[in-house]
Simulated assay, not measured.
Amino acid sequence: MTGPESEGPVLRRAVCPGSFDPVTNGHLDIIGRASKLYDVVHVAVMINKSKQGIFAIDERLDLLRRTTAEYGNVEVESFHGLLVDFCKQRDIPAIVKGLRAVSDFDYELQMAQMNHGLSGVETLFVPTNPTYSFLSSSLVKEVAAWGGDVSHLVPPIVLTALTERLGRR
């Protein structure tokens, strides 16, 4: 896509937000699918100082950068505050969210309507691949903490980091 001659190319941009603690194959499925639809996909790692994650923000950023490098058009950043402010600052008109179940839709629809009302940013819902319909970072952490096999749920580098982290506890 190109804009007027003075503007240069117009890039189609979207954001995939989340805590990504840790990033799962389900997250990567949504990010990968968004990367096929948009010129630039921003992966925004939410900073919530009131929650103690298993991985620090810098570790999550590193794991995401390494696991999304193959896409070539993904930029990984952290943010604190409202997602719509993140979008405004970067001229991002769309949020891409994966939906696992109807229960996700109820909450995400409210968020989408609020975000649109605040800033005009659109939210696109992508149905999760059925292989990952049950998957969440919370479940991965819980199963891994009890010694369960999560190797089919996270990328190998995340599995290594998770095993090392839980091994130190």
Rank of each mutant, 00 (worst) to 15 (best):
S119H: 06
E7P: 01
R168Q: 14
M1C: 14
K88D: 09
E108P: 01
L159F: 14
L61P: 05
L153P: 07
W146A: 10
S151P: 08
P155T: 04
G26Y: 08
L118T: 03
H80A: 11
E142V: 06
A161T: 05
M46W: 06
R12N: 08
N129K: 09
L124A: 10
P4Q: 14
E164M: 00
G53M: 03
P127H: 02
T163S: 14
G18D: 04
S119Y: 06
L139Q: 06
R60D: 03
K51R: 14
E122K: 01
E5R: 11
F105K: 07
A69H: 11
S19G: 12
Y132I: 07
G26I: 11
M111W: 02
D62L: 07
D21M: 07
T67F: 00
T68C: 15
T68Q: 08
A56E: 12
R165T: 12
R12K: 12
S19H: 02
F105R: 08
L63I: 09
H152K: 10
V10I: 15
F79Y: 15
H27Q: 14
A144T: 02
V23S: 05
N115I: 09
A14R: 01
L63D: 04
L159H: 11
G3V: 05
M46K: 04
T163A: 13
S6P: 00
P9G: 10
T67I: 01
G147R: 09
K49M: 11
Y132D: 07
F134R: 09
R60G: 02
N115R: 02
A56R: 12
A56I: 06
F134D: 15
K97G: 08
G117M: 09
Y71C: 00
T2M: 09
E122G: 07
L124Y: 13
D149V: 02
A44D: 12
V84D: 00
I157Q: 06
R165E: 13
S133Q: 12
Y38M: 07
G147A: 12
M111N: 05
V121M: 01
R65S: 08
R90Y: 02
T67C: 03
M114G: 04
D149W: 08
D149E: 10
V126A: 12
G8H: 06
I30K: 01
V23P: 07
S6R: 14
R90Q: 02
F20H: 13
E142I: 05
P156G: 02
D58P: 00
